[in-house]
Amino acid sequence: MYFVYILYSSKTKKYYIGSTDDPKARFKHHNYGATPSTKSGAPDWEIFYQEILPDRTAALKRESEIKRKKSRKYIEWIISSSKSSVG
């Protein structure tokens, strides 16, 4: 099982999209500043969205799909859609 996730840093006011098979460990790496692309937002990263996928290939494909949009509005739409469907 793999995960695609969206993080948000209140420090940098930016989102980060990634994928992993171990979300807890990956989240710690982001907040400890161990990931170069998210170091500037540490330790303020929060998980805003998470999606479960069956395998690494599917996760990488979905991560790429979200990143290709290059749209903050699209990211925020994904986040708000997931929150409204939970309630």
Rank of each mutant, 00 (worst) to 15 (best):
83 K>E: 08
79 I>D: 01
82 S>T: 14
27 F>A: 07
77 W>R: 14
78 I>T: 01
47 I>L: 14
21 D>P: 10
20 T>K: 11
20 T>I: 03
11 K>G: 02
63 E>F: 02
35 T>N: 15
79 I>E: 01
42 A>Q: 09
1 M>H: 05
29 H>V: 14
18 G>H: 04
51 E>M: 12
4 V>D: 01
46 E>C: 10
41 G>Y: 13
12 T>A: 01
58 A>E: 00
9 S>K: 08
66 I>V: 12
84 S>L: 11
28 K>F: 14
32 Y>M: 13
63 E>I: 02
76 E>P: 03
87 G>I: 12
73 K>E: 13
22 D>T: 14
23 P>R: 12
31 N>K: 04
85 S>H: 07
48 F>Q: 15
58 A>Q: 00
34 A>W: 14
40 S>I: 12
23 P>M: 09
10 S>P: 09
60 L>Y: 11
76 E>I: 03
77 W>L: 13
50 Q>D: 07
23 P>F: 10
62 R>V: 08
14 K>I: 09
32 Y>P: 04
24 K>N: 15
12 T>Y: 05
15 Y>Q: 00
41 G>N: 07
21 D>K: 15
65 E>T: 13
62 R>Y: 07
75 I>C: 08
65 E>P: 03
8 Y>A: 06
37 S>N: 10
20 T>L: 06
53 L>H: 02
73 K>F: 05
67 K>Q: 15
64 S>E: 06
10 S>I: 10
62 R>P: 01
2 Y>S: 09
17 I>H: 04
65 E>A: 11
2 Y>H: 10
37 S>R: 11
43 P>E: 09
54 P>M: 02
52 I>H: 12
64 S>G: 05
32 Y>Q: 15
51 E>S: 11
68 R>Q: 14
37 S>Q: 12
63 E>W: 00
17 I>E: 04
21 D>F: 14
81 S>R: 03
83 K>R: 13
69 K>V: 10
81 S>D: 09
20 T>H: 06
49 Y>P: 01
24 K>Q: 14
84 S>N: 07
46 E>A: 13
25 A>R: 14
66 I>G: 01
29 H>N: 14
33 G>W: 07
25 A>V: 14
